[in-house]
Simulated scan of single mutants.
Amino acid sequence: MTHEATSSLVVAGAVLEHLYHGAAWTEGPVWLAESHRIRFSDIPNDRILEFDAASGSTSVFRRSVGYANGRTLDRSGRVVECSHGRRAVELADRDGTPRTIVDRWENHRFNSPNDVVVASDGAVWFTDPPYGIHSSGREGYPGEPEYEGCFVFRHDPATGTTRPVITDMTHPNGLAFSPDESVLYVADSGRLWIDDGPHHVRRYRVSGTEVGEGEVFAVVEHGVPDGMRVDEHGRLWVAAADGVHVLRPDGTPAGFVPVPEVVGNLCFGGPDGHDLYITASTSLYRIRTTTRSA
């Protein structure tokens, strides 16, 4: 690595490994500890892939998956993922069969849920930009929005209640909580489709189920911010066009991991949690870090 600020974030001598090539646009990585695999999406090819860390091989896990995008684990270790095609957030059974968690708000179908996190109370928070319904069939099925705007939603599985918690963003995309869940970071990738649209990360204070007014936390100059993760020290790892940017809780740069393709998302994994897996354009990458997921 050549970026000086990165030295404390990656293991000395660590290099970026190119693990897989052959997708159209990779997204939604999650580490599955039981099988030591990374599950991730190849959205335009409508399939889910898995990388086996033991063998180094990548295989197709499922096809015709409803243009699955971002995913995470719930408090029981089950996979929760977003479906552009079904305009839903879903729970994946062990064989990958999806079961709907939520697919509408006040009888309005969502646009195309993009990324998701599960809070410590079990609530499912997710973003809902229009990319699936407005992608001309590349990342979903063409459709029309059924509510005005693109919101961040909170769904409570215990009560079945779903409500918008953030409504002041253009195209909310990746999202991540601070370690104590008092702050929610949300990427706005509006510049993807709007020339003068936003390309920043916003920060919102969270108290229980309530979200306060947001503020711009950091602007991404290379492309737009996409998927994000927070490490155990509260630093935000942000996917961008030129690599992964790492920001301290005060918004100042902490490091940078350059990647030769446009980065869509990332996650921590490996037996001790110190491996950073990066989905970027056609590929899956990995680098060894000195930190772990929060």
Rank of each mutant, 00 (worst) to 15 (best):
T162R: 12
W125L: 04
D196V: 03
T167G: 02
F217K: 05
S178D: 08
C150N: 15
N114V: 13
R138M: 07
Y147L: 10
R203E: 08
P172F: 01
Y185E: 05
T161V: 11
E146L: 15
N111T: 15
E215L: 09
R138F: 09
G140Q: 10
V102W: 05
H134Y: 12
L175F: 05
F217R: 05
I166D: 02
V201W: 02
Y185V: 03
R104E: 14
N173G: 12
P164C: 07
R99A: 11
Y204V: 07
R203I: 06
V152N: 05
A218Q: 02
R191Q: 13
D168V: 10
R163M: 05
D196P: 01
I194V: 14
W125F: 00
F126R: 08
H200P: 00
T100L: 11
D180H: 05
G132K: 09
D121I: 04
S120W: 03
G212P: 02
E181N: 03
A176L: 09
S112E: 02
F151W: 14
Y131R: 00
V118F: 12
W125K: 07
R154S: 08
R205Q: 03
Y131L: 00
F177Y: 00
P172C: 10
V117T: 08
P198K: 12
R154D: 08
N173W: 04
V183A: 04
G212C: 03
R191A: 15
E148P: 02
T162A: 15
N107K: 13
R163H: 06
F110I: 13
H199I: 01
R99K: 12
S120C: 11
G197N: 06
S136I: 02
R109Q: 12
E146Q: 15
R99W: 04
V201L: 04
H134L: 13
D188R: 08
H108E: 12
T162Y: 11
R205D: 05
V201D: 02
G160P: 00
T100H: 09
P98F: 09
N107W: 04
I133F: 15
D168H: 09
E146I: 15
E144K: 15
P98H: 11
H134W: 14
P164F: 07
A218T: 02
T167F: 01
V183I: 14
L175R: 05
G208A: 11
G140V: 13
V165C: 11
R104C: 07
T161I: 12
P129K: 14
